[in-house]
């Protein structure tokens, strides 16, 4: 088993937390994990992406090769489209519906969603709405974790365990909010 995932978003959306939770879940199952992330200047409201890989055999590259990603999991719809050449022919795009417009010249918002909708395997999720329902708009990243979970090939218990350990310093309220966000996202993915 090997999974190649591109995580896409914008600085400040909690993309690295999302990467850390999936990576920790895979590690807890004794899988080998590689996860490349972006630090420094690029984080100032600019594009943030992470290559995340795990497998039941040793992985050698920190980066995903073009044409091999099983999943593009995006916290922002325009960012979902930025990485299509990484996707394998059978790969899926799961994206938040909410555009983050912090630049001039952001493309037509409905056209962005329509373009995602034309991809063979896609799902668009109201991550912000569901995160508010869970209790905190910042938990949109965990909604997207739930929404993407059918493509991760990891048991839900490993993911919820990783959520609990990631947010352990923030206390039980924050943990419960993020678990609820995960469950709402998972329900929105059409699986339970």
């Amino acid at each position: 088993m090997i999974r190649n995932i591109i995580l896409a978003g914008v600085g400040g959306q909690g993309l690295l937390a999302l990467a850390a939770v999936i990576g920790e879940a895979a590690r807890s199952l004794d899988l080998d994990v590689k996860q490349a992330e972006v630090h420094g200047m690029a984080q100032r409201g600019g594009v943030v992406q992470s290559h995340l890989r795990y497998a039941d055999r040793p992985l050698r590259s920190n980066l995903v090769r073009r044409g091999t990603a099983d999943l593009i999991l995006a916290l922002e719809p325009m960012e979902a489209l930025r990485y299509l050449p990484y996707l394998s022919p059978g790969g899926a795009v799961v994206s938040s519906a909410a555009p983050l417009v912090n630049i001039p010249g952001y493309p037509d918002e409905s056209a962005v969603l329509e373009e995602i909708g034309r991809l063979p395997a896609h799902r668009i999720v109201d991550a912000v709405g569901l995160a508010k329902e869970a209790g905190a708009v910042q938990a949109a990243n965990m909604v997207m974790l739930g929404a993407g979970s059918p493509h991760l090939d990891l048991p839900a218990s490993a993911l919820t365990g990783a959520i609990e350990s990631f947010f352990t310093d923030k206390g039980p309220v924050v943990i419960e909010t993020n678990l609820k966000a995960f469950r709402l996202g998972k329900a929105a993915s059409g699986t339970s």
């Binding site: 914008v10 600085g11 200047m41 690029a42 984080q43 100032r44 409201g45 600019g46 594009v47 325009m78 960012e79 489209l81 930025r82 912090n102 630049i103 010249g105 952001y106 493309p107 056209a111 962005v112 373009e115």
Partner: peptide, 8 residues
């Protein structure tokens, strides 16, 4: 479609 999104 994606427009550049430089840091700011």
């Amino acid at each position: 479609t994606p427009a550049p999104r430089p840091p700011a």
